[in-house]
Design a protein around this nucleic acid. Sequence first.
RNA 1: GGAGAGGUGCCAGAGUGGUCGAAUGGGACUCACUGCUAAUGAGUUGACCUGGGAAACUGGGUCCGAGGGUUCAAAUCCCUCCCUCUCCGCCA
Length: 440
Amino acid sequence: MIDIRGLREDPALVKELLGRRGVESSIVEELTALDAAYRDAVSARDELRSRVNETSRRVAEAYRNKEAAEAERLKEESRRLGAELEVVAAQATDLEGRRKDLWLVIPNVPSPDAPVGAGEDDNVVVRYWSSDGGSSVEAPDLDYPAHKRVPHWDIGVELEILDLERGAKLSGSMFPLYKGMGSRLIRALTSFALDAHADSFLEIRPPTFVKRETMISTGHLPKFADDAYQMERDDLWAIPTAEVPLTSMARDEILEADQLPLRMTAATPCFRREAGSAGRDTRGLLRLHEFDKVELMVYATPAQAQEMHIEILSRAEALLRQLGLTYRVLDLCTGDLGASSRRTFDLEVYAPGVDRWLEVSSVSWFGDYQARRANVRYRTEPGGGVEFVHTLNGSALAWARVIAAILETGREADGSVTLPPVLTPYLRGAARIPVPEAEI
RNA sequence: GGAGAGGUGCCAGAGUGGUCGAAUGGGACUCACUGCUAAUGAGUUGACCUGGGAAACUGGGUCCGAGGGUUCAAAUCCCUCCCUCUCCGCCA
């Protein structure tokens, strides 16, 4: 949730910044109006409640003084005030609910540093990286031989490591089934990444299904309910990313300043209905209802947040470099920013077979937007006041698309795939995926 | 799933209708004493909403697992739900 006090103080600024991401100023004005009405109602309710309380106190007093008649009279008065209170309180409750409903669906105020733009075409490429060219603001040479211009779904069938038809048989399209080296590759990548972060990130294995409140904390509900899988009977939701459970780890808690920054990492499956993109990218591993991902998440003080943002980004990039994959870093423009985010960098790997840049990581700084929803605070100093923490997270990394890029990038002329050497120790020494011998 | 016990402040723990935001102990913080640490003494110590104030501070309201109800009045009585513990059952 945005800082509603900040909104009261400077509505023009909030309107301006939210306008950059396409939020109508009338919506902000509506929240301002509801907020004012809510506060009036609360004052009226509290004043009346105060009188009821006072009257009740006098009832007790009257009884103590053995003034039964006076007590009866006060009880009658209190009853009358109570009836009045009920009406006023109902109004306050109604306004509070309407204010909260609107408050919850208003997206975060973007960072003034985020590039202004309408949509993904306006994202800014910060840099490219390739194993040949290193880091550069110039796009690398994307000149690949024909044998690398084969889509991973064909490679997957050829090498017998992907069986999307059987995945579809079991669960429907966009639920992949990996086998053999395909399956092992996910395990290897997961171990590789978790080990890479083990120096300073606490490894967590969170639950995969979470309560409604947990989804609300990160901003995935109520607005984006259509994108999530729900177990209706128990009102549990399948996590779309480990960000969801990790961000709620400290929900309703007050952390000590010396615990921050608090870094965590988790490998989990991620579930997405992809409701808005039916029919797009239905082939292969480009867009899936279920995929595995390693996530990094940090609780930080506002002062630490920027530095943590860079640290997460660096870690995600380091993995891609070690895997030898060509990638680029995008600074998302205000129009493409996720609803909860203040600023986001996306990492996209280049997959030569499908000739596309694939998003494999999204590194976001949420400010206190999620912390306010999740009520995660910290004590600024021992015995001092409390403030909301800042939350940040980033994938490091989402494996399905990384695997697509590895297969396409590593494909040799004979059809086998050479794997990134860093994975060899995690693959019982295997350095490549051979072409299966033809059956006789 | 069945039976029982229980959920109170940072922690432990008292409190069965009004004087309870809540005893007491511990912790933490501040001050004093001490060369330092420890010990001792005194004091302070919640979060949230809303109003006043530049601020220090201050008025009102809410919060004793959650939500409803009874009552002039609920931590305390009633109902529903959630969670924890013990035993039984089941199970990887």
